[in-house]
Design a protein around this nucleic acid. Structure first.
Lengths: 193, 193
DNA sequence: ATCCATCTAGGATGATCGTCCTACCGGCTT
DNA sequence: AAGCCGGTAGGACGATCATCCTAGATGGAT
């Protein structure tokens, strides 16, 4: 198989495994078995475990960029775009209940490990933060756009954490509605002004 | 030294280490060095690593119970009690910026590990949930008390996660104010009815 | 058919992990 | 003084980890 193909397969498998089991608890052997390759062969594709992590984070950044672009294409209205973001916790409900938010849990783990890739993981948050900020600016809240973006981000993280802890889907819908109500309130204010 | 004393020392050291580095990344050796005991001596006090974790969680539950009782003693007003809870993210600001919320990060890690002590860790959340629910009931919101408790809990978790990711203290204060404003709105509603 | 670059398999290495065992020490009882 | 017992030290154990190396397989170009 071509080098890049195998690499992509490894990254895809590692991505999922790191999400499900955490970075530290994901071993070379586990990834190798998932891809169907021999353990020793990894050195040819990735020299260190940290290199795999970096590739996974890069891949996630690329995927996220694509998702944001997709939301921009599908929805012209900034408020509707933000709603797309808010609803991921429902869309990916099952995964979040089982494994939490991929971004939040990875960032938290890397922080505890003092891992060099921690800033890159946090950059995933920044991606959402900036994109949401752009949408709030478009809604006419330029001055508070970043604060509002962080609010939406934080709220979503909280929902994900508790959904994972309690496994309660009623709660998720309720909090999503609460956040959407807050958003509707924001847009009505911007329409008035 | 008496058995119970050493045990308490081990639990205290393990508690802190598990918070700072995560459960999996905290080894027997690390805890032993922190307490100043020999590695092998642990078997006398704790037969397995999971046993230490269970003891740490029990200790945290007891500490939390004490903190909640303290808030009840210090503040007669339910709204003020809830505000005490909300402000932990500021009180423990430095720790949260470095290591996140002790409850949230531990629960998330144990979920990924499919660890048998996961329910016990989640019970820490339940402790706060029930206590907050009691306060909201006292405020006259019996019907939505649990939902409101979960909302406060989720909000706090979100703040903690992002504070850890971005290390931004302005954000923490802003979101705390937002949550306190929401709470003030709730109490004014209950006063009116 | 030969050759070379690409890719793979599988084992060796040293470190660290949780776990366990046994020899030891010091203070108390008798 | 003798003996016991709660507490300790330190090393051995097998497993697993990330990493590294080397021998072999594959397949297209010559």
């Amino acid at each position: 198989m071509a080098r890049s193909e195998t690499r992509a397969q490894i990254v895809a498998a590692a991505d999922r495994l790191i999400y499900e089991r955490g970075f530290e608890h994901t071993s070379f052997t586990t990834i190798a078995e998932a891809v169907g390759l021999s353990r020793g062969n990894f050195y040819y594709h990735f020299k260190t475990k940290d290199e795999i992590l970096a590739a996974v984070i890069d891949s996630r950044i690329e995927t996220t960029r694509g998702m944001l672009r997709c939301w921009e294409d599908e929805a012209a209205e900034p408020a509707e775009r933000i709603r797309r973001f808010i609803r991921i916790v429902e869309t990916n409900g099952a995964d979040i209940r089982d494994f939490g938010c991929p971004v939040g849990t990875l960032t938290a783990e890397l922080a505890k490990l003092h891992h060099p890739s921690r800033p890159e993981a946090a950059a995933l948050f920044t991606l959402f933060r900036d994109w949401l900020g752009t949408q709030f600016t478009a809604l006419g809240h330029a001055a508070e756009a970043d604060a509002m973006a962080l609010h939406v981000l934080a709220f979503s993280q909280g929902i994900a954490t508790l959904a994972n802890a309690f496994g309660n889907e009623d709660f998720v819908r309720r909090e999503v509605e609460r956040l959407e109500a807050w958003l509707a309130d924001c847009t009505s204010k911007s329409a008035r002004s």
